[in-house]
Amino acid sequence: MILSRRPRPTALISLVPMIDVMMILLVFFMVTSTYLNLDMIPALRPSDGASQSNGSPDLRLMIRIQADGTPSLRGETLSPQAMAQILQQTLSEDPAAQLVILPSGSAPTQALITVMDQAASAGVQNMRVLRLEARP
């Protein structure tokens, strides 16, 4: 007598659970990651041969835009005329001077545009906007 066995069921390997786990991990890492644009942080400036031969440091001017939209330099509030005068004086000392604008998080965007427009009309060619955020 020949006994017939039932054929063993073939193991079905499903990739659906693995794909679900990978999607959850992807969403988790995307949400918890922070990205920095390191180009906007003026930590180091590539030095050219002209500034090395003079031995003088590159000039940087940091203008903060306060929450009410008024620009300030070293804690002093600047009027548009005073800012234009300071920019002209800085550019006369070093035409490649760097202007760093640091707007407050609650400052209106128009204040940033106004400062950038005044700097461009004064002849500033090296300008950066630096946005700082508080860490929780």
Rank of each mutant, 00 (worst) to 15 (best):
V16T: 07
A134P: 14
V21H: 11
Q118V: 03
R5L: 14
I24A: 14
S47K: 15
L36V: 01
Q88I: 10
M116W: 11
D68E: 04
N37R: 02
V27Q: 07
V21D: 11
A67K: 07
R8T: 02
I2C: 01
F29T: 06
E133V: 13
S51F: 07
A107M: 15
R60S: 08
G105T: 08
D94M: 10
L102F: 06
L78N: 01
N126M: 07
L26R: 08
L99R: 02
V31W: 07
P71T: 08
I86R: 06
A97W: 10
M116E: 15
L91N: 03
G49Y: 06
M23G: 07
L15M: 04
V124E: 12
L12I: 04
V129K: 11
E133F: 06
R5I: 09
V27F: 03
L102I: 00
P7H: 12
L87T: 00
T70F: 02
L25Q: 09
D68W: 00
P42V: 09
M83C: 00
S106E: 06
A97N: 11
D58F: 11
S47L: 15
L78R: 02
V16W: 09
L112I: 15
A43W: 14
D48W: 00
S72D: 08
N37V: 09
T32C: 10
A96P: 03
M1C: 01
T34M: 02
Q88K: 11
S104D: 14
A107I: 10
D39T: 04
V27C: 05
T114F: 03
S53Q: 15
G105P: 09
Q88H: 02
I41W: 00
I86T: 08
L44M: 15
N126S: 11
